[in-house]
Each structure stands twice: as structure tokens, then as C-alpha cells.
Simulated assay, not measured.
Amino acid sequence: MSASGLLGTPATKAWLAGMSVASALAGALGWRRNLRLQLAPNVTRDWQAWRLVSSLAGFPSLSEVLTALVLIYQLRAVERLLGTRRFASFLVVSGIVGQTLTVAGMLLARLNSVSSGPYVLLFACVHQFYLLVPHSYYVQVLGVAVADKWTVYATAACLLAPRLPMVAVPALAGVLASMVYSADVAGLKRWRMPMWVGNLAQRWIAPFLLPVSASRAGGIRRSTTPAPAVDVAPEQVDLLVGMFPDAEREHITSVLRMVGNDSNRAVAVLLDSS
């Protein structure tokens, strides 16, 4: 995972780092049981509501962590299309709605526990990826023509398959939470994380996520080498800014880069994400 591939996606970087650290600490300190969402006796009797949050923190096994890291990296396009603040807001909304739906699904299916891991967040992002990210070309897989996005779905399937059926409820809850968000139920799509949260993250978290390289003196310095970017014609950006006055110019530029400067596809993406 190159640093340049994560440029412009600070929320994705924070998610990758946070999930890795949480999973490692859970394994090293014997906290893996705290990553598991279990209704009785933890939630219903002992009122350990914090398990609804801790179950989204990480995975209990290294193989799951590695697969999830690859999947999150592939899903970074969602943050680029939504913008960092909106993507972070989407994760919060998906986590709350998704966990509520997970508990409801567990009660309906008479399940007392489900496998630990942020399946709700991951599959909410997979659904947004399906909706927002346009395909660039088709490839032949076992003689069948499929869109180039198939690798994301294949990775998601690899993460899901070993734990079925214990992950079916949270995965489905994540997709449903994304659908609720896209439908703007109760104005959830318009909610944004407070600016002060973003300012705190910018001050205390972002410096640790910047790419670094060794200095000639043997210390550490931030890399200042810019990553190559696709050229975007200013006229295209100006046209789309006029069509979408509420969208930030940087966001429109990012969308144009994602779709290879195709204005028609950019309009379709901006309409879906508005």
C-alpha cells in the first residue's frame, strides 16, 4: 500500500491505522472477547453498551485484519468522491444505524452473538462504492466480462466467507444502513461531523499519518514529494461548479480525476453523491 495511493484520504488512513492498532492490542492484551458483540449477558444483563462500539474496532485474527486492510485500501475511492468530512460523517451514521439494525436482526434471528469486526462499516462502504464509483473498463474473468470493480467485491467475499453465517447479520445491516443514508432518511445524509472534531483530528492525528522519509541526518522528516496527478482542465471544473454550486471545487476536481476527465460520468457521480 503506497503512501501516494492514500493521498487525499486522511479518514481512510486513520481507519487503517486504528483498526490495525485495535486488533493488535486486542490480541496482545487478551481483549479479543471485548471485540465480540454478545447480547446476553453482556448487553441485556450487564448493560455493557460500549460493546456496540468495541465490536467495530478490529478483528480477532491476523488473516481477517490483512484482508480488511486490503478492502479498506480499495474503498479509498469512496472518501475521494464524498470528501473527507462527509465520508467521516457517513461512517458515524452507518455505525449507529448499522449497529441498531444488527441488534434488531439478532433478535429476529434469535442470535445471541455475531463475529467481531467492523463488518457494518465495511459493507456500508462497499455499497457506497457500488453506487458511486464508476467502472473504467471490463475484464475477462473465467470467460465472463466483468467490470474492473470486481476485485473489491471479491475481497469483500473473501472476508465474509470464512465467518458465515455469523457475519451475515452485520454485513446485511451495513448494506441497509448505507441504503438508509443514501435515501436521506430523517436527514441523515445531510448531517456533518462538527468542525471542532475535524480540527482536533487535523491537529492531533493527521501529523502521525503523513508519509515520512529518512533525512540525511538520520532523523525523520515529512515527505514533500508530490504524487503524480491527472491533469484536469479548469474549464471542466468551472462548468461543474456552475452545475453543482454546493460542491467544493476540490471535490469536483477529485471526481473528474476519478472518472478520467469524463464530464458526463462526473455529473452522474456528483448527482448520486449529492
Results as ranks from 00 to 15, higher is better:
residue 59 F to N: 03
residue 234 P to Q: 03
residue 231 D to K: 06
residue 233 A to W: 04
residue 190 R to G: 00
residue 193 M to A: 02
residue 123 F to I: 01
residue 142 L to E: 10
residue 107 L to V: 15
residue 79 E to A: 10
residue 137 Y to P: 00
residue 64 E to W: 06
residue 250 E to P: 00
residue 54 S to T: 15
residue 73 Y to L: 01
residue 255 V to A: 10
residue 30 G to K: 09
residue 257 R to I: 04
residue 50 W to C: 02
residue 39 L to Q: 06
residue 9 T to A: 06
residue 163 R to S: 11
residue 76 R to Q: 10
residue 264 N to R: 12
residue 64 E to N: 13
residue 217 A to G: 14
residue 215 S to W: 05
residue 108 L to G: 00
residue 223 S to G: 13
residue 251 H to Y: 01
residue 14 A to Q: 02
residue 191 W to I: 05
residue 56 L to S: 05
residue 108 L to W: 13
residue 114 V to I: 13
residue 198 G to N: 12
residue 97 V to A: 06
residue 126 V to W: 12
residue 129 F to T: 08
residue 256 L to F: 07
residue 155 T to S: 10
residue 207 P to M: 00
residue 46 D to Q: 12
residue 198 G to L: 14
residue 88 A to L: 15
residue 32 R to K: 14
residue 183 A to W: 13
residue 60 P to F: 02
residue 273 S to M: 08
residue 218 G to D: 12
residue 226 P to N: 07
residue 220 I to T: 11
residue 97 V to L: 06
residue 21 V to R: 09
residue 43 V to R: 02
residue 174 G to H: 06
residue 68 A to T: 11
residue 196 W to T: 03
residue 113 S to A: 13
residue 71 L to Y: 04
residue 99 Q to C: 13
residue 217 A to F: 04
residue 131 L to M: 10
residue 140 Q to D: 14
residue 274 S to I: 05
residue 144 V to K: 13
residue 97 V to Y: 02
residue 230 V to Y: 01
residue 44 T to F: 15
residue 98 G to S: 05
residue 6 L to M: 11
residue 30 G to N: 02
residue 213 S to Q: 14
residue 49 A to L: 15
residue 267 V to A: 06
